[in-house]
Write a protein that binds this DNA or RNA. Structure first.
Lengths: 143, 143
DNA sequence: ATCAAATCAGATATTTTTATCTGATTAAAG
DNA sequence: CTTTAATCAGATAAAAATATCTGATTTGAT
């Protein structure tokens, strides 16, 4: 049973949205993120580390350390998080799992699937973390 | 890294499409399906068994036994295979992984994601195995 | 200086998915 | 009636995804 993105990726998107929503110059600890978003602490910690490695967020160690966005929220898109965690393979591999699936050797749903995939990609590319800030605040307040 | 459907589901869709394309009253063995579609024999065998349990295909044992569609290809849709194998949870769970995600407590991408998901669902619902028969034949001939 | 609170890296554990093995059963054909 | 080619059920194995543990390091505050 699949749900588009891996748990890691879902958590990563939640976390980075939370960072953007929560941000007022202060650093946010993995512990806080874990508690608010109900993600296992050590797991979200690893995910945050990988997002840092990808350059989307930055971290500082020691007491009162934590995480923050590495660049303006307006310059971070959902697709960046997907690319960093799940990769973009899903956007150019065959939905029916055929090895080669191209315009010259299309799978049976190649043409109907294509536009849907493109729309999905475009959506993830146009949604910046910044644009989603208000909605994230609302969502968080209901957790 | 996710690709929408599980391997099982991809293989299941390929196999049922193959059955429809291949069908001229004859039964098709798991071995043939495995070879043509390059799916591990015992694995596709299990998948075929589960599709039989779901009532989409039927099987007969013994020499010259094999599998065939359990009903007219025009009455089998891709969504039936997805429902049988991966389940339909992906069509009503939150794409960002939030526990509750509803119009009253929407996740940040609830409204942009909704239409895309609906379109995807509709596509899988309108594509019958029968309609995809010709395209499947073309695809098979290139394997 | 010591303590406390945090990240960090690497190892380990658990669960799920993917794949294979074993042997039983069935049924057509020689 | 024996052989052969197939499904079938259940167990097992291997790989990947998810989650946890351990202890080291960093850094601000007491």
């Amino acid at each position: 049973m699949t749900v588009i993105f891996s748990k890691k990726c879902e958590y990563g998107m939640q976390a980075i949205l939370y960072l953007a929503a929560r941000e007022k110059g202060t650093l946010v600890s993995a512990d806080e993120i874990s508690k608010v978003l109900k993600i296992p602490r050590e797991f979200v910690s690893k995910i945050l580390q990988s997002l840092r490695d990808s350059g989307l967020i930055s971290s500082s160690k020691g007491k009162s350390g934590g995480f923050s966005l590495a660049k303006p929220a307006s310059r971070i898109k959902l697709i960046d998080v997907v690319a960093a965690i799940d990769g973009l393979e899903m956007f150019d591999s065959c939905v029916l799992g055929f090895q080669e699936c191209s315009p010259t050797h299309p799978c049976p749903v190649h043409n109907t699937w294509g536009p849907l995939r493109t729309q999905t990609y475009d959506m993830l590319t146009s949604e910046t973390i910044d644009k989603l800030k208000e909605k994230t605040l609302h969502k968080i307040s209901s957790l």
